[in-house]
């Protein structure tokens, strides 16, 4: 994720209903809001899912995005988090070329990044790393010289930081009553 671009993180609680992903994704496309990443998962309550969407702020005025999202009927709650106010995590799986002479360097790198070796082959290894997006970017940069075979990232998920949950959350806290 390119850190020069200003991002907004939206955490959207939606009803777990048919077609809800396409309603939300369609809205972003229709209004010209660019999605950087998107993750969807069930929540503690099976009636709802949570979507974490990172958008390019330049394309998407914060207030319009929130208001337009609330117009979708399955959308229950929208929270917008500034990256400073959020606990963010992303997971990456990466397969790198690892001939025997390079292997120890790669495993050393992995241990610095608290990454795990998930699979080992004759010519390559697959590493899993989790953390903030900039950590994954750094890991990617350092692995590139070895030759990246395949790389997959989950997209960001985030929750508001607890200490600041009340005061600094710049969300529309509830649907405008």
């Amino acid at each position: 994720m390119n850190s020069d671009i200003q991002h907004h993180i939206y955490s959207i609680l939606v009803e777990n209903k048919f077609g809800v992903l396409s309603r939300v994704a369609g809205l972003f496309a229709r209004r010209g809001f660019n999605i950087v990443s998107l993750a969807v998962s069930p929540t503690e309550d099976e009636r709802f899912s949570r979507m974490t969407i990172v958008v390019d702020a330049a394309s998407a005025p914060l207030e319009q995005v929130t208001k337009q999202l609330y117009k979708l009927i399955p959308v229950i709650k929208v929270m917008e988090m500034h990256p400073d106010d959020a606990v963010e995590r992303e997971l990456m799986l990466v397969t790198v070329k690892a001939a025997s002479d390079a292997r120890s360097q790669i495993t050393e790198l992995a241990s610095i990044f608290e990454a795990r070796i998930e699979d080992v082959g004759f010519e390559s290894i697959t590493i899993q790393v989790a953390g903030r997006p900039d950590k994954l970017d750094a890991m990617t940069d350092l692995l590139t010289p070895f030759g990246i075979v395949e790389l997959q990232r989950t997209g960001l998920i985030a929750l508001p930081k607890l200490a600041r949950r009340m005061g600094r959350l710049r969300s529309v806290k509830t649907r405008p009553a």
Binding site: F18, G19, S22, R23, G26, R30, I73
Partner: peptide
Amino acid sequence: TVGITMPVTKHNWLVT
């Protein structure tokens, strides 16, 4: 139909 009309309806339903 539900997919096509999603952007031009306030809401739509597929009855299951």
